[in-house]
Amino acid sequence: MSMWEYANPKRFMEWTAPVVPWAFGLSGVLVVGGLFWGFFLTPDADKFGSTVKIIYLHVPAALMAINAWFMMLVASVVWVIRRHHVSALAARAAAPVGMVMTVIALVTGAIWGMPTWGTYWVWDPRLTSFMILFLFYLGYMALWEAIDDPDTAADLTAVLCIVGSIFAILSRYAVRFWNQGLHQGTSVPVVTGGRTIADIYFIPLVICMFGFGILFIALVLLRTRTEIRARRMRALTARAARA
């Protein structure tokens, strides 16, 4: 049996039903545990005081904001090539989640910015990139909502997502060129393996990142299931109207 059979709506509903509560439970434990550890069990940093602890929300949210768009891109490409409805609906389901993650990253960044930079908002490359990402989510969701026919909407949003991704990457480099910025470098540079953050802060951060990742998966599965049900209702209503 090919892995694509799991993408059949009925099969998808079957195998995700038991997964969703477990995913929510696990993400709840990780997020709550990680945040509690980070907020109450780590010492205040020398330079920043306790404000630095917002990192446990800010970094995982920012990570998932980008990963959500990446997931939507993959799902859109899968829809365009293989035309699996679940794929298109999953992309649609991920957009609001990704947008909320973007907003969390922006808001926590602004709150953090006040004590560290003395201002809520600077047109710093990273902040600006997230603002642009937010606009992309907004446009993507608006296009989904604007089109009646579900397959047309799926096709057009997939085209927008693919083209938008190219422009999003372009924007990221444009933004760096435009303003070098105040934002610190990444705390967890995966590529180099080194990091600028001590173990004592790092471990709860990793837990939070995993927690947010699983929370994202749980939310997208739940929302995709909702989209499938909505689509099924639509299909049944249409058939009833014809009969």
Partner: peptide, 9 residues
């Protein structure tokens, strides 16, 4: 069968 909704029925 064969409609866009077929997979959902």
């Amino acid at each position: 069968d064969g409609g866009a909704d077929a997979a959902f029925l």
